[in-house]
Amino acid sequence: MNIPYTVEVRPDTGLANGKLGIWLFLASEVMLFGALFSSYIILRTGSIHWPQGELNVWLGMVNTFILIGSSVTMVMAWASLKLNDWGKHRLYLILTFALAGIFLVNKYIEYADHITRGEYPSHSTFVAMYFTLTGLHGLHILGGMVVMAYFIGPGKKMYQTNREQFVNRIEYTGLYWHFVDLVWIFLFPVLYLL
């Protein structure tokens, strides 16, 4: 049985089902992170003392550069497919995957530094919020890497059998990845700078 509207658009929405699906998923993600940001505001405005300058700004900035770079390579992976350049698509997708990996390594270094200083989530409200927000974001990075690994590895076969559907899948992966970048764009100033 074939799933309908994976490539062709639905006449009522004007969209392929996957595209509307990923946007609805991202809408739910906005609410998930929104709830945590809202909690952060309540906890911060309600506290007498809020620590500042606790985190390594330079490492945070490097991670911001890495994620922005990965967003560019991700959109280039999709654009290369649209231009029928399979080689460049592979290069950009692998680069995106590698940058995501470097981001997580940096995060590991940061976490390890906190743990060795005895700064567990129970240390303070700020550290608890830091681990919750960056931990959830890190899980999203990991999820994106799993999807990218699939398209770098076993999922690439679809390019030969159903090229348009493969291009759509890369586009949806990209939409998710840009959202993960967008969340970090707000997390970085909120946690590291303010």
């Binding site: 929405t13 004007g14 969209l15 946007w23 991700m74 939409l175 970048d181």
Partner: peptide, 12 residues
């Protein structure tokens, strides 16, 4: 730009 929201369909 990256998520192409400047030219999307009304359902989105």
């Amino acid at each position: 730009v990256f998520m192409h929201l400047n030219h999307e369909k009304k359902w989105i």
